[in-house]
Design a binder for these strands. Sequence first.
DNA 1: GTTTAAACGAGACGGTACGTCTCGTCTTCCC
DNA 2: GGGAAGACGAGACGTACCGTCTCGTTTAAAC
Lengths: 192, 192, 192, 192
Amino acid sequence: MPQQNRSRQNEKVRIAILDAAFSLVREVGYDKLTIEGIAKRAGAGKQTLYRWWSSKALILLEALVEHVKDELVFADTGNIRDDLLAQMLRVEKLLTSKDTGCLFIGLLVEAQFNQDVANAMNVQIYQPTYRAATERLAIAQRHGELQPGLDPVMMVELLYAPIYYRLIVPCTKLTAADIPKFLDMILAGIRL
Amino acid sequence: MPQQNRSRQNEKVRIAILDAAFSLVREVGYDKLTIEGIAKRAGAGKQTLYRWWSSKALILLEALVEHVKDELVFADTGNIRDDLLAQMLRVEKLLTSKDTGCLFIGLLVEAQFNQDVANAMNVQIYQPTYRAATERLAIAQRHGELQPGLDPVMMVELLYAPIYYRLIVPCTKLTAADIPKFLDMILAGIRL
Amino acid sequence: MPQQNRSRQNEKVRIAILDAAFSLVREVGYDKLTIEGIAKRAGAGKQTLYRWWSSKALILLEALVEHVKDELVFADTGNIRDDLLAQMLRVEKLLTSKDTGCLFIGLLVEAQFNQDVANAMNVQIYQPTYRAATERLAIAQRHGELQPGLDPVMMVELLYAPIYYRLIVPCTKLTAADIPKFLDMILAGIRL
Amino acid sequence: MPQQNRSRQNEKVRIAILDAAFSLVREVGYDKLTIEGIAKRAGAGKQTLYRWWSSKALILLEALVEHVKDELVFADTGNIRDDLLAQMLRVEKLLTSKDTGCLFIGLLVEAQFNQDVANAMNVQIYQPTYRAATERLAIAQRHGELQPGLDPVMMVELLYAPIYYRLIVPCTKLTAADIPKFLDMILAGIRL
DNA sequence: GTTTAAACGAGACGGTACGTCTCGTCTTCCC
DNA sequence: GGGAAGACGAGACGTACCGTCTCGTTTAAAC
């Protein structure tokens, strides 16, 4: 991330670019978004974008992080099901909202082909999320709410998995109503 | 899909194009794959590709389907865990193999932005898969192996979900070794 | 020319093709005329056209010749100026008429780059024209109407030259009214 | 013409493109000349050509004008025949030279179908030529060398006409040796 | 308050691939 | 078995963006 190197540059330009990218991606979609389009909307030169970011994905990631950095917390109410449900709904909202949904999918897509983007997403999104989630699950295990032998990381993945599945697989639809159903299936198991 | 309209055209050309696409996508990756590149390798004119397919994704989908149409079965050995594990491993292999892995991811990606591709994948991949899987699960419910109140479709999704999650989320890795762990977590539940 | 080889082929097809070419070139212009367009209008297969003609120019030439073969005569009224003027006006009319004008220009153009067309035009258009014209001029020389020492061929060329000049040079316009002026300048000379 | 708008652009690129066009048209002929070919030889991107010129004809016209802008003068030695002959030979040389001949014919051809090219040729080639020529002829008329009642413009056209005729009509050949013969026929008239 | 170095907007540049078009050849099917 | 119909390989068209590269012009810190 380049922020640290740019202490002297005009913060206004950076904000204008992030805003332009954030609004444009909603209007034209991730794949139709171009560096030239962002530059034009931001009233910036293309060179300015290339100076600070190495791809459009990293611009969007920075824009996204500014919008969602407060969502990664994991509350502890004492009841693990409530906390898990709250967090799953929070993620579901993030991934389906008009603002951030297609942006997030675009970034996931880009990360498939671009290792820099994958690493950046990992550092800025997934590591904080996993840390918060595994800590909460470990507490629940110690409290006897969850099975003690299971790997917290795999539990996190299993919990988020249906959300991403519905997001990614064509012709499925991610809805808030199905979240608690999936949660309870995971908690109780599907075997008789 | 155009196959039905092309009874009179040279099947050799179609095969050459699908083969070219299938081999090229392995070598250069989905996003670097171009229509021109496929045409060149196939010894075909670009117009021929555009005549029969409306995007590179649909070419790849057709190529993929030819390679995997036999994988969508769902055996019934009488033991539901065995059958589920076998199918999950089959899918895992498909999604991580050198041949079809990045091809499949590319198609998933494309389907995010291209409704035609999404529909085509649904018809050719997901509907057959879901049908086979839900039938097997319903049998297991009737046999008293699985909880009778659960929606077979959601169970299918839950079972496939961790596979897709590991496939799609950056910096995670889909391995055969984790498949039975996820399966048992889903079967038994994670709650104590 | 292919006519002699096609005794057995359907004359109706040939006529349909020539008619289609002749009418199409008026509507779309020489440079926008395509083999495919002619075939479509004629209700013929492209292969049929390629079988009998080697370029669209030769189709048009054949169509043109059918329309103008009677114009190449050179009457002898006994008065050389009258005969020359009549012929020059006849050519002017041919070159500026809606039917044949742009067709003829197209052929001239094509002949610049295509030796086959140049030869065909020479044989079918220019040789008959030159023969008729030089014969009439030679008679006039013998009758003491024209200077005896001049080359009849060059005289023919000089007479036709202003017509072609006006036809070909951009932003000049070929009009019947200027023909007699040019003729009299050539007859009398421009020197005082 | 775009020259005036491009003060800031790299003149080297413009020259490279004009040179490439000029040399390529000699090698492959006007009709086989392509924008892509020019771009490739010039080491330029296609977009650069499209940015400054709207057709290959206008590129060639600009290249031509650079080569011939000094040929359009019309000397005044006091003897009208000498001056006319000199100018006609100059034009003959221009139209038959290996460098500029087929290029010029190509432009004439293009001007038949493309009004922009016709206008550009008129402005850059014919208007200067006509102006210089009619002025010299008017002087000759005032000096009593030429008939005073004749239109200078039509005289100019008549003088150039045989040159263009020989250039354009298939299977005729423009030679320097015939130029003075045509000139003298025009000056003296062909009537006895 | 001036200097000066960077970051800036603007956009030309060499490229690549796009999707379309037409060419002239080749193939299939029907009459 | 000849012709319409049209698929085919080829390749140029004109467009859109890519990422790089000058250009002057702010602009803000250092002097």
